[in-house]
């Protein structure tokens, strides 16, 4: 049981990192990025290609991928979402849905439907190993990187002039524009930053799990879970959301067997959505 709790919490860290991008975009641009999971898997595939074909160093590959993903985020926001955003959030969501289908099938065409894995320096090693608990090196790395990155994102949004402009653009579009902020440009920046962070999530996911072109959906649902529990738009909420989802899955796996791990995650989510439709931590916004 202790093992389940610790593994659950550690998994929660990675889950939070997967979810934070979705949460940011929902909070800032007010669009549900249904292609979020697929974009993350795109970055995983980028890292895989770069590390096998171009450079032999996974960190260099990650750095290159972060730049590529930031550019992709920039393009998606500028040419897809910004074009339709005035027609309402649902239209933008359907655009991203179309993009998600296109990405999945493009990846299948290029890489085939088989399983892939990324090399990892800590694969197979143990961070802690004792009779009571054991923590794999990969899970420990995931957890630490996720915490650092999420805190970093929160600092960017909180302390830097760019972050302040982005938050201003999202909290009151008209006032921000009157103050001379181009809100749509801010959305573009927000998407670029988000996608850069998503590239890191893509690396960790690729090192931890095997992945294939259709895995994006699976991680999108995890991201949804994290964000729904933590509250859409809340950066630190994703940490709590991730922890709760990870714990629910591992405890269910411990009690009922691994077959029910996924189902338990969904059910916890549906219950939370029913009881607190606006998220566990988010404040009620009055309009």
């Amino acid at each position: 049981m202790l093992q389940a709790i610790i593994t659950g919490l550690l998994m929660g860290g990675l889950y939070a990192l997967i979810g934070v991008g979705l949460s940011l975009i929902f909070g800032i641009v007010k669009v549900t990025n249904i292609a979020h999971g697929d974009l993350m898997i795109v970055s995983t595939f980028f890292i895989m290609v770069i590390v096998t074909k171009l450079v032999n160093n996974i960190y260099l590959a990650l750095a290159i991928t972060i730049v590529i993903m930031a550019i992709i985020g920039f393009l998606i926001q500028k040419f897809l979402i910004n074009t339709v955003i005035d027609q309402g959030a649902e239209t933008a969501m359907l655009v991203m849905f179309g993009l998600s289908i296109a990405i999945q099938n493009a990846l299948t065409l290029i890489f085939g439907a088989g399983n892939n894995a990324l090399p990892s320096p800590v694969k197979g090693t143990n961070f802690i190993k004792s009779d009571l608990v054991s923590i794999s090196g990969q899970y420990a790395v995931n957890f630490i990187v996720a915490i650092v990155l999420i805190v970093g994102l929160a600092l960017i949004m909180d302390k830097t002039p760019l972050g302040r402009s982005i938050r201003a653009a999202s909290s009151d579009t008209m006032a921000a524009e009157l103050m001379g902020i181009n809100t749509k440009t801010m959305y573009v920046w927000a998407m670029a930053i988000t996608m850069a962070a998503t590239a890191v999530a893509g690396l960790l996911v690729g090192q931890t799990y095997s992945f294939f072109p259709y895995t994006g959906t699976q991680f999108l649902i995890i991201a949804f879970g994290v964000v729904v529990i933590g509250g859409m738009g809340s950066i630190f909420g994703t940490l709590i959301g991730g922890a709760i989802l990870g714990l629910a899955q591992m405890i269910a796996a411990y009690l009922f067997g691994t077959a029910y791990q996924t189902l338990a995650g969904y059910i916890v989510l549906l219950i939370l959505l029913t009881v607190r439709p606006q998220g566990l931590l988010s404040k009620k916004v009055r309009k």
Partner: peptide, 20 residues
């Protein structure tokens, strides 16, 4: 449950139900 969810939460909720 899903009619207590609004807008995008409804969308996510229906998807979760189907996946479940």
């Amino acid at each position: 449950p899903i009619f207590s969810m609004k807008d995008v939460y409804f969308t996510i909720g229906t998807w979760l139900v189907a996946e479940a």
